[in-house]
């Protein structure tokens, strides 16, 4: 095999995710009554980016071989925090943004500390911390309300030069500043190694605890970016249990669509982003094809089942039946 084939084999999941998204988005736009205008792109981008932040957070934890069922609640909590503190003069707003991101980091660090140093299973840990985060959100916002610096919010959800959605730039910037350095650093490579085989990574001298902890912290940060963006998008804070639950569900689905292996060690944030865009396009397609609102939840579920069943095709390639039980 020459270099380019290695390159493709390593990124197969990500490339498939991009292809699937492009195919679905083309169908969506072709059937859209208006077509691809700057405004349609802006709306699609805003919704997609919102989910994408949460999905990247989920992907970071999944890559270490864990799962984060609290990611939707981190979004809800940071949304409620942002609706209090991201207001006022540019200086105050800036400090507010830092505060929101800091609280996301704290959430991620709490999850990571309990899972890694407390040695509890990620599923049950994040269900429990999710309850705590939701409780905090309810204390902050018993009723929906609050506000946000609208100049900043409009800038972040608007367009640049009247064409490019700002939200896409924001997402790309976040990935460039956070994901790319992490992926290349010893910490990031260690997180992948720990997800692939924790024992082998440990034997090779990888500081697996530190690497996994960094991934959880970064996941919290991306979760809070999602919460911040939700506040920009809605101008309010709301402690809605169903919404947090829904984001958690779709983050897992989108991670799968984005080619990130749930067994850990494989995947990329870029794949996760396109998984998120695909998940959003599924919802939008139902709208464009004028499906009865009552049937939409069911059809979304059916799409979800079909999408995850695709992974089962790998079973056909298994040469030894014992490999079923990995």
């Amino acid at each position: 095999m020459n270099e380019s084939r290695y390159w493709i084999a390593e990124r197969r999941g990500t490339l498939i995710a991009i292809a699937v998204f492009l195919a679905m988005f083309v169908i969506y736009i072709a059937n859209h009554p208006v077509g691809l205008t700057a405004n349609v792109a802006q709306t699609a981008a805003n919704k997609g980016v919102l989910l994408a932040f949460v999905v990247v957070a989920q992907a970071l934890v999944v890559i270490t071989g864990g799962i984060d069922l609290s990611v939707g609640m981190v979004l809800v909590l940071t949304n409620c925090i942002a609706s209090w503190i991201v207001v006022g003069t540019p200086m105050q707003t800036g400090l507010g943004v830092l505060g929101v991101l800091g609280s996301g980091i704290l959430c991620g660090a709490l999850n990571g500390a309990i899972v890694i140093y407390g040695r509890l299973q990620p599923i049950i840990t994040t269900i429990a911390t999710g309850a705590i985060f939701f409780g905090l959100a309810l204390i902050l916002r018993p009723y929906p309300g609050g506000s946000v610096n609208e100049d900043l919010a409009d800038a972040m959800t608007g367009q640049i030069f009247g064409v490019v959605p700002t939200s896409l730039i924001l997402l790309a910037g976040a990935l460039l500043v956070l994901w790319v350095p992490f992926r290349g650093s010893p910490l990031g490579r260690g997180a992948f190694a720990a997800g692939s085989s924790e024992v082998a990574a440990y034997m090779s001298g990888v500081p697996i605890h530190r690497c996994k902890f960094a991934a959880y912290v970064l996941a919290g940060l991306f979760g809070s970016l999602g919460g911040l963006f939700l506040t920009f998008y809605t101008y309010t804070g709301e402690a809605a249990y169903a919404s947090g639950d829904g984001y958690t569900l779709w983050s897992i689905a989108a991670v799968v669509l984005g080619g990130v292996s749930l067994y850990g060690g494989r995947g990329s944030a870029v794949g996760a982003v396109f998984g998120a865009f695909t998940a959003r396009t599924i919802g939008d397609m139902l709208f464009v094809f004028d499906v009865d609102a009552l049937w939409q939840p069911l059809l979304q579920g059916v799409f979800l089942v079909l999408a995850i069943s695709i992974g089962a095709i790998a079973l056909l390639r298994v040469r030894n039946r014992l490999d079923w039980f990995e």
């Binding site: 040695r119 840990t125 429990a128 911390t129 959100a137």
Partner: peptide, 28 residues
């Protein structure tokens, strides 16, 4: 207890009890 406190105590109690007796083995 209001709903918010209930959720939080719930989460904290589950975590505390598991940390007390449900910890995984020192795997590596």
């Amino acid at each position: 207890m209001p709903e918010a406190g209930r959720q939080m105590i719930y989460g904290v109690v589950i975590l505390a009890m598991l940390l007390a007796y449900g910890r995984g083995p020192r795997s590596v």
